[in-house]
Protein backbone atom coordinates (compact mmCIF):
# COMPACT_ATOMS: atom_id res chain seq x y z
CA UNK A 1 0.00 0.00 0.00
CA UNK A 2 1.44 3.38 -0.98
CA UNK A 3 1.20 6.43 1.25
CA UNK A 4 -0.10 8.67 -1.53
CA UNK A 5 -3.22 10.65 -0.62
CA UNK A 6 -6.11 9.73 -2.90
CA UNK A 7 -8.74 12.05 -1.46
CA UNK A 8 -8.37 15.10 0.70
CA UNK A 9 -11.33 17.13 1.91
CA UNK A 10 -10.54 20.13 4.07
CA UNK A 11 -13.14 22.01 6.10
CA UNK A 12 -15.84 21.43 3.51
CA UNK A 13 -18.93 23.57 3.98
CA UNK A 14 -21.89 23.46 1.65
CA UNK A 15 -24.86 25.78 2.03
CA UNK A 16 -27.90 25.52 -0.20
CA UNK A 17 -29.42 28.92 -0.50
CA UNK A 18 -33.12 29.43 -0.94
CA UNK A 19 -34.23 31.58 -3.88
CA UNK A 20 -36.59 33.33 -1.47
CA UNK A 21 -35.22 36.31 0.39
CA UNK A 22 -35.12 36.03 4.12
CA UNK A 23 -35.14 32.24 4.12
CA UNK A 24 -32.02 30.95 5.87
CA UNK A 25 -29.63 28.85 3.79
CA UNK A 26 -29.62 25.14 4.55
CA UNK A 27 -26.19 23.87 5.61
CA UNK A 28 -25.88 20.34 4.22
CA UNK A 29 -22.20 19.86 5.06
CA UNK A 30 -20.57 21.65 7.98
CA UNK A 31 -16.79 21.68 8.16
CA UNK A 32 -16.12 18.09 7.07
CA UNK A 33 -12.48 17.06 6.71
CA UNK A 34 -11.17 13.67 5.73
CA UNK A 35 -8.18 12.08 4.09
CA UNK A 36 -8.14 8.75 2.25
CA UNK A 37 -4.83 7.07 1.49
CA UNK A 38 -4.40 5.28 -1.85
CA UNK A 39 -5.53 1.65 -1.71
CA UNK A 40 -7.93 2.12 1.20
CA UNK A 41 -11.64 1.39 1.29
CA UNK A 42 -13.28 4.29 3.13
CA UNK A 43 -16.90 4.17 4.22
CA UNK A 44 -18.84 7.31 4.99
CA UNK A 45 -21.87 6.39 7.01
CA UNK A 46 -24.76 8.38 8.36
CA UNK A 47 -28.54 8.62 8.32
CA UNK A 48 -30.48 9.91 5.31
CA UNK A 49 -29.95 13.61 4.73
CA UNK A 50 -26.79 13.77 6.81
CA UNK A 51 -24.63 15.14 3.96
CA UNK A 52 -23.00 11.98 2.58
CA UNK A 53 -24.08 12.44 -1.03
CA UNK A 54 -23.38 16.18 -0.97
CA UNK A 55 -19.83 15.46 0.23
CA UNK A 56 -19.36 13.02 -2.66
CA UNK A 57 -20.84 15.46 -5.18
CA UNK A 58 -18.48 18.18 -3.94
CA UNK A 59 -15.59 15.78 -4.44
CA UNK A 60 -16.75 15.22 -8.03
CA UNK A 61 -17.28 18.89 -8.79
CA UNK A 62 -21.04 18.40 -9.18
CA UNK A 63 -21.60 20.97 -6.45
CA UNK A 64 -19.23 23.81 -5.60
CA UNK A 65 -18.13 24.07 -1.95
CA UNK A 66 -19.35 27.18 -0.11
CA UNK A 67 -15.97 27.02 1.60
CA UNK A 68 -13.19 24.51 2.00
CA UNK A 69 -11.42 22.42 -0.61
CA UNK A 70 -11.61 18.95 -2.14
CA UNK A 71 -8.83 17.28 -4.09
CA UNK A 72 -8.29 13.94 -5.81
CA UNK A 73 -4.70 12.75 -6.07
CA UNK A 74 -3.64 16.33 -5.45
CA UNK A 75 -5.85 17.85 -8.16
CA UNK A 76 -8.58 20.35 -7.36
CA UNK A 77 -11.99 18.64 -7.67
CA UNK A 78 -13.46 21.57 -9.54
CA UNK A 79 -11.01 21.00 -12.42
CA UNK A 80 -11.98 18.55 -15.17
CA UNK A 81 -8.52 16.93 -15.03
CA UNK A 82 -9.22 15.56 -11.54
CA UNK A 83 -11.84 13.27 -13.11
CA UNK A 84 -9.24 11.31 -15.11
CA UNK A 85 -8.60 9.15 -12.08
CA UNK A 86 -12.17 8.80 -10.77
CA UNK A 87 -15.07 6.48 -11.42
CA UNK A 88 -18.46 7.31 -9.94
CA UNK A 89 -21.56 5.24 -9.31
CA UNK A 90 -24.49 7.42 -8.22
CA UNK A 91 -27.30 6.22 -5.99
CA UNK A 92 -30.02 4.43 -7.95
CA UNK A 93 -28.53 5.06 -11.37
CA UNK A 94 -30.74 4.53 -14.41
CA UNK A 95 -28.36 5.05 -17.34
CA UNK A 96 -29.61 5.11 -20.92
CA UNK A 97 -32.25 2.42 -21.32
CA UNK A 98 -31.87 2.39 -25.10
CA UNK A 99 -28.26 1.17 -24.91
CA UNK A 100 -27.12 -2.40 -24.37
CA UNK A 101 -24.62 -3.29 -21.64
CA UNK A 102 -21.71 -3.31 -24.08
CA UNK A 103 -22.84 -0.05 -25.76
CA UNK A 104 -23.08 1.63 -22.36
CA UNK A 105 -19.49 0.75 -21.53
CA UNK A 106 -18.34 1.78 -25.01
CA UNK A 107 -20.05 5.17 -24.62
CA UNK A 108 -18.41 5.91 -21.27
CA UNK A 109 -15.09 4.52 -22.51
CA UNK A 110 -15.13 6.85 -25.51
CA UNK A 111 -15.83 9.80 -23.20
CA UNK A 112 -12.55 8.86 -21.49
CA UNK A 113 -10.75 8.80 -24.84
CA UNK A 114 -10.53 5.02 -25.11
CA UNK A 115 -10.75 3.74 -28.67
CA UNK A 116 -10.50 0.66 -30.86
CA UNK A 117 -9.19 -2.65 -29.62
CA UNK A 118 -8.19 -1.25 -26.25
CA UNK A 119 -11.78 -0.19 -25.63
CA UNK A 120 -13.28 -3.46 -26.88
CA UNK A 121 -10.95 -5.49 -24.66
CA UNK A 122 -11.81 -3.30 -21.71
CA UNK A 123 -15.56 -3.71 -22.35
CA UNK A 124 -15.23 -7.51 -22.49
CA UNK A 125 -13.01 -7.58 -19.39
CA UNK A 126 -15.42 -5.43 -17.37
CA UNK A 127 -18.50 -7.35 -18.41
CA UNK A 128 -16.77 -10.52 -17.23
CA UNK A 129 -15.73 -8.86 -13.98
CA UNK A 130 -19.30 -7.81 -13.15
CA UNK A 131 -20.71 -11.09 -14.41
CA UNK A 132 -22.79 -9.56 -17.21
CA UNK A 133 -21.20 -11.25 -20.23
CA UNK A 134 -24.46 -13.04 -20.99
CA UNK A 135 -26.38 -9.76 -20.93
CA UNK A 136 -23.88 -7.71 -22.96
CA UNK A 137 -26.23 -7.27 -25.94
CA UNK A 138 -29.40 -6.79 -23.92
CA UNK A 139 -30.76 -3.25 -23.52
CA UNK A 140 -30.54 -1.78 -20.03
CA UNK A 141 -34.32 -1.30 -20.05
CA UNK A 142 -34.52 -5.05 -19.43
CA UNK A 143 -31.89 -5.19 -16.65
CA UNK A 144 -32.79 -5.92 -13.03
CA UNK A 145 -31.82 -3.51 -10.24
CA UNK A 146 -28.79 -5.59 -9.32
CA UNK A 147 -27.65 -5.79 -12.94
CA UNK A 148 -27.98 -2.01 -13.28
CA UNK A 149 -25.82 -1.50 -10.20
CA UNK A 150 -23.21 -3.86 -11.63
CA UNK A 151 -23.18 -2.22 -15.07
CA UNK A 152 -22.94 1.07 -13.17
CA UNK A 153 -19.91 -0.22 -11.35
CA UNK A 154 -18.41 -1.37 -14.66
CA UNK A 155 -18.91 2.07 -16.26
CA UNK A 156 -17.29 3.64 -13.22
CA UNK A 157 -14.23 1.46 -13.80
CA UNK A 158 -14.06 1.84 -17.57
CA UNK A 159 -10.97 4.06 -17.72
CA UNK A 160 -9.27 2.02 -14.99
CA UNK A 161 -9.43 4.83 -12.42
CA UNK A 162 -7.38 4.81 -9.26
CA UNK A 163 -10.35 5.99 -7.21
CA UNK A 164 -13.93 4.73 -7.17
CA UNK A 165 -16.70 6.75 -5.54
CA UNK A 166 -19.78 4.68 -4.83
CA UNK A 167 -22.96 6.26 -3.50
CA UNK A 168 -25.10 3.57 -1.83
CA UNK A 169 -23.77 0.83 -4.12
CA UNK A 170 -26.09 -1.87 -2.75
CA UNK A 171 -29.24 0.21 -2.28
CA UNK A 172 -32.33 -1.69 -3.38
CA UNK A 173 -30.35 -4.75 -4.48
CA UNK A 174 -31.29 -8.26 -3.31
CA UNK A 175 -28.89 -10.13 -0.97
CA UNK A 176 -27.23 -12.08 -3.80
CA UNK A 177 -26.65 -8.95 -5.90
CA UNK A 178 -25.50 -7.12 -2.81
CA UNK A 179 -22.98 -9.87 -2.04
CA UNK A 180 -21.68 -9.76 -5.64
CA UNK A 181 -21.12 -6.03 -5.36
CA UNK A 182 -19.32 -6.40 -2.03
CA UNK A 183 -17.15 -9.17 -3.47
CA UNK A 184 -16.33 -6.84 -6.36
CA UNK A 185 -15.33 -4.06 -3.97
CA UNK A 186 -13.01 -6.45 -2.16
CA UNK A 187 -11.52 -7.59 -5.48
CA UNK A 188 -10.90 -3.94 -6.35
CA UNK A 189 -9.25 -3.33 -3.00
CA UNK A 190 -6.96 -6.29 -3.66
CA UNK A 191 -6.03 -4.66 -6.97
CA UNK A 192 -4.99 -1.51 -5.11
CA UNK A 193 -7.93 0.66 -6.17
CA UNK A 194 -9.06 3.21 -3.62
CA UNK A 195 -12.77 3.03 -2.85
CA UNK A 196 -14.79 5.79 -1.21
CA UNK A 197 -18.31 4.61 -0.52
CA UNK A 198 -21.25 5.85 1.41
CA UNK A 199 -24.05 3.77 2.77
CA UNK A 200 -26.39 3.45 5.68
CA UNK A 201 -26.18 -0.36 5.59
CA UNK A 202 -23.73 -0.59 8.46
CA UNK A 203 -23.08 -4.33 8.34
CA UNK A 204 -21.98 -4.10 4.74
CA UNK A 205 -19.72 -1.14 5.44
CA UNK A 206 -18.16 -3.04 8.31
CA UNK A 207 -17.43 -5.95 6.02
CA UNK A 208 -15.55 -4.08 3.32
CA UNK A 209 -14.13 -0.88 4.79
CA UNK A 210 -10.71 -0.21 6.32
CA UNK A 211 -11.61 3.29 7.47
CA UNK A 212 -14.94 4.73 8.47
CA UNK A 213 -16.30 8.22 8.99
CA UNK A 214 -19.62 8.88 10.68
CA UNK A 215 -21.40 11.98 9.47
CA UNK A 216 -24.42 13.39 11.27
CA UNK A 217 -26.31 16.59 10.48
CA UNK A 218 -23.53 17.63 8.16
CA UNK A 219 -20.73 17.20 10.70
CA UNK A 220 -18.11 14.46 10.92
CA UNK A 221 -18.71 13.07 14.40
CA UNK A 222 -16.28 10.12 14.40
CA UNK A 223 -13.52 8.98 12.08
CA UNK A 224 -10.76 6.39 12.10
CA UNK A 225 -9.67 2.81 11.38
CA UNK A 226 -12.63 0.49 11.57
CA UNK A 227 -10.81 -2.05 13.77
CA UNK A 228 -9.90 0.69 16.25
CA UNK A 229 -13.36 2.17 16.31
CA UNK A 230 -15.34 -1.00 16.92
CA UNK A 231 -12.96 -2.93 19.20
CA UNK A 232 -14.22 -3.32 22.80
CA UNK A 233 -10.96 -2.87 24.65
CA UNK A 234 -11.88 -4.61 27.91
CA UNK A 235 -13.31 -7.78 26.31
CA UNK A 236 -11.64 -10.83 24.66
CA UNK A 237 -13.25 -13.24 22.24
CA UNK A 238 -12.21 -16.91 21.92
CA UNK A 239 -13.85 -18.99 19.20
CA UNK A 240 -13.28 -22.76 19.27
CA UNK A 241 -14.33 -25.62 17.07
CA UNK A 242 -15.56 -29.01 18.40
CA UNK A 243 -15.12 -28.01 22.05
CA UNK A 244 -16.52 -30.69 24.40
CA UNK A 245 -18.83 -29.75 27.31
CA UNK A 246 -16.04 -30.89 29.69
CA UNK A 247 -13.57 -28.46 28.17
CA UNK A 248 -16.12 -25.68 28.38
CA UNK A 249 -16.64 -26.45 32.05
CA UNK A 250 -12.86 -26.35 32.68
CA UNK A 251 -12.66 -22.94 31.03
CA UNK A 252 -15.56 -21.67 33.11
CA UNK A 253 -13.84 -22.88 36.32
CA UNK A 254 -10.53 -21.31 35.32
CA UNK A 255 -12.17 -17.95 34.67
CA UNK A 256 -14.01 -18.10 37.97
CA UNK A 257 -10.67 -18.62 39.75
CA UNK A 258 -9.39 -15.37 38.22
CA UNK A 259 -10.62 -12.43 40.28
CA UNK A 260 -10.15 -9.70 37.69
CA UNK A 261 -11.96 -11.52 34.85
CA UNK A 262 -15.65 -12.15 34.38
CA UNK A 263 -17.17 -14.63 31.99
CA UNK A 264 -19.84 -12.75 30.10
CA UNK A 265 -21.14 -15.31 27.64
CA UNK A 266 -20.59 -18.85 26.39
CA UNK A 267 -22.50 -20.56 23.67
CA UNK A 268 -22.71 -21.15 19.94
CA UNK A 269 -22.00 -18.20 17.70
CA UNK A 270 -24.79 -17.35 15.31
CA UNK A 271 -24.56 -16.93 11.59
CA UNK A 272 -26.20 -13.89 10.04
CA UNK A 273 -29.54 -14.06 8.31
CA UNK A 274 -27.76 -12.90 5.15
CA UNK A 275 -25.27 -15.78 5.24
CA UNK A 276 -28.11 -18.22 5.85
CA UNK A 277 -30.05 -16.78 2.90
CA UNK A 278 -27.04 -16.94 0.60
CA UNK A 279 -26.24 -20.50 1.63
CA UNK A 280 -29.83 -21.66 1.11
CA UNK A 281 -30.26 -19.95 -2.25
CA UNK A 282 -26.93 -21.37 -3.45
CA UNK A 283 -28.23 -24.87 -2.60
CA UNK A 284 -31.43 -24.12 -4.51
CA UNK A 285 -29.39 -23.11 -7.53
CA UNK A 286 -27.50 -26.39 -7.50
Amino acid sequence: MTSETAVEIRDLVKDFRSPLRGVKAFRAVDGVSLRIQAGEVYGLIGPNGSGKSTTMKALLGLVAPSSGTCSIFGKDSLKVDSRNDVGFLPENPYFYKHLTGAETLRFYGKLCNLRGKLLENRVTELLELVDLTNARDRRLGGYSKGMLQRIGLAQAMVQDPRLLILDEPTAGVDPIGSRQIRDLIMTLRDRGITVFLCSHLLEQVQEVCDHVGIIFQGKMVKEGRLDDLIAIEDQTEVVMKNASPELMEKIRTLVEQEESATLLRMGKPRTTLERLFLRETQIDKK
Binding site: V80, R83, F88, N92, L111
Partner: peptide, 14 residues
Protein backbone atom coordinates in the same frame (compact mmCIF):
# COMPACT_ATOMS: atom_id res chain seq x y z
CA UNK B 1 -33.59 13.24 -13.45
CA UNK B 2 -32.15 9.83 -14.34
CA UNK B 3 -28.76 10.85 -12.87
CA UNK B 4 -27.04 9.83 -16.09
CA UNK B 5 -25.68 13.37 -16.17
CA UNK B 6 -23.73 12.66 -12.96
CA UNK B 7 -21.99 9.71 -14.56
CA UNK B 8 -21.09 11.78 -17.63
CA UNK B 9 -19.83 14.83 -15.73
CA UNK B 10 -17.94 12.53 -13.35
CA UNK B 11 -15.84 11.55 -16.39
CA UNK B 12 -13.32 14.04 -17.74
CA UNK B 13 -15.98 15.81 -19.81
CA UNK B 14 -16.12 19.63 -19.79
Amino acid sequence: EDRTLYTILAKPVP
